[in-house]
Design a protein around this nucleic acid. Structure first.
Lengths: 336, 336
DNA sequence: ATAAGGCTTGGGAGCGCTCCCAAAAGAACA
DNA sequence: TGTTCTTTTGGGAGCGCTCCCAAGCCTTAT
């Protein structure tokens, strides 16, 4: 069943059917109606490949997530992001192709797969490592893409949607200081991801600004996983910090567990602030004080930006930075 | 840059280049080598649309997940499944297209989108509701697909990968009985999903078989979300059950919270068994006794099955049922 | 009645591939 | 040397669309 068949059945030419399908106004109402009826009767849908061959557009965007650690992205951050992207793309009549890079996949092979795949009009890249060469390779080949998180380099030319991670981290640390905490430690995220890096920078800036003691032993490197939060906190306990800024809620869950196991109390013995404001942050006891970042909004804006770029309604660079917001709950302590 | 260009550069014909790209043995080693060099030099990749137009194959499979509730699939079940599918598909040289049905999306519109999209060779459908007409529509149009979870109807003709949910639920309840519990309640999953339904059936069969009292008030309908586990358990507490079989670990987390808030102890006051064996089941206190289902394996087999079906190496129906396994930890109590 | 103008419609060309058949080149044998 | 067979190569046709130009039709004005 193709255009020609539909044309024959409805007694018009291939061109007219094409016009009807593409909503071209140059068709009489009578003809349009008739053709639409025939199309519906036969469940006809145009052959996407043939269309793509001539238009050089597929109406498909790709999502590349490279941070997939361990048993997969158990961190609901990615689920939320993914859902936002897929939903928004569908609303704008785009379909979505998905690539997940696990640890085991060979990166060259994987990149080649994405670079060679010409089935997508554009890409959203999420949580690209500082060492990931994909953005550069795509740039070099003139492919349209939007980064989730600001780029490590070439900032002026890249399209991205970011959150104010530095500022969020600062707010968190400042709030802990305001609550009377002096010895404030941090468990970082992956430092090869811009979000992890920026949150550490924010921590440092706040410490410096507040003229609090900065000690290397108060900075523990995590990798955003729950288990790394647990391990990080176990290391940290012997350092006896008053408070800890943890670069993700997911890690904060692990940290809470470590604290509970050691018999200490949150926030009395150790105060905690997380980052992300994931849905489970209100389900812990005590409830988690955290820095909210608009994950869903990031996904939506990345998608809208990409599609706008593709359709020419947005001229590059498309650069967005979304605000973060401190959400005060119980884990940070109460004013004395 | 197309086949013809590469042909010109390497001094051979379009056909020969095509043969090289498709690994046709009827090319001399010298020619092949030369052509490959030119291809690499120009970063040439064949135009997928043109190829698909003639072969009628895209090497793309689609995944349709319809269970997306609320703030997205916060249940890591889907993340795990998705990752397994994507990884396996990529290994077999297929790309993956993703559709997520949220509550808000109009189902007709969504189905049309999937039915019309001829860009995928086949589909994996996960957690399709009993009321979802997509499987029938796909069947009617002769599209190849594999269900994750056995179908609600037309079982003989459908391809599916399932887990032994009934048996798993039975084991869970039997174990609770063995631990000395008499008044065993359940919080069900969504009963329009086959997994939720089968787990309830398994519960009932066990109760009947063990000749324990069956009371309607001991069966609370949940929907697999954490919050429904919380709400369900709050309702259940007044019924004073000895033990509860909860149809997912995610709901069990909510139930644990409800029990803790009411000042009761697990397993002393109420024993609990979950389902899924998600990674967080060992992080709760007490650790969760649960029924393990091989989610990853399900994703892998669904993908392999679909691809096998597409390539003709498997003849339909492709029907797999994977075993579940009781994992005994702390929440179910200890032998008296 | 004729010309001029706007709508609507039809059909050729071409997108970049694969597939098939036929031609060319090389190998092997008498 | 010619003949036959095998291996390697070339080129036409066609997949199902869109895009463009030209032709046909219907108005409306002169």
């Amino acid at each position: 069943m193709n255009l020609e068949d539909i044309a024959r059945f409805s007694g018009v030419s291939r061109s007219t059917v094409s016009r009807v399908i593409n909503n071209d106004p140059h068709v009489s109402d009578k003809t349009r109606e008739n053709v639409l009826k025939i199309i519906a009767e036969h469940n006809y849908a145009p052959n996407i490949a043939a269309r793509a061959l001539v238009t050089k557009r597929t109406h498909v965007i790709g999502i590349y997530i490279s941070n997939v650690i361990g048993d997969l992205f158990s961190d609901p951050y990615f689920s939320t992001l993914l859902q936002a992207i897929v939903t928004r793309a569908n609303e704008q009549d785009f379909d979505v192709m998905l690539w997940l890079k696990g640890q085991e996949t060979s990166i060259e092979h994987f990149h080649q797969r994405i670079l060679d795949n010409r089935m997508t009009d554009g890409l959203v890249l999420s949580s690209t490592s500082r060492y990931d060469t994909l953005p550069q390779a795509l740039l070099q080949r003139n492919r349209t893409f939007v980064l989730n998180g600001r780029p490590w380099c070439d900032e002026e030319h890249m399209n991205y949607v970011d959150a104010t991670n530095q500022h969020g981290a600062q707010q968190a640390v400042e709030h802990l200081a305001r609550m009377g905490h002096k010895r404030i430690a941090t468990i970082t995220g992956r430092l090869d991801l811009i979000s992890g890096y920026d949150r550490l920078i924010g921590y440092r800036q706040a410490i410096e600004h507040l003229e609090l003691p900065f000690e290397d032993s108060l900075v523990i490197e995590g990798d955003f996983t729950e288990i790394s939060g647990y391990i990080g906190m176990r290391k940290l306990i012997s350092e006896k910090p008053d408070a800890v800024f943890i670069a993700s809620d997911h890690m904060a869950i692990g940290a809470l567990r470590a604290i509970r196991e050691s018999g200490l109390q949150v926030p009395d013995d150790i105060a905690l602030v997380g980052f992300d404001d994931m849905s489970f942050a209100t389900m812990t006891s005590p409830q988690l004080t955290t820095v909210r970042q608009p994950v869903q909004r990031q996904g939506i804006l990345a998608t809208e930006g990409l599609i706008g770029l593709l359709e020419g309604s947005i001229t590059p660079p498309y650069q967005v930075s979304l605000p973060t917001q401190l959400v005060i709950r119980e884990s940070c302590g109460f004013p004395a």
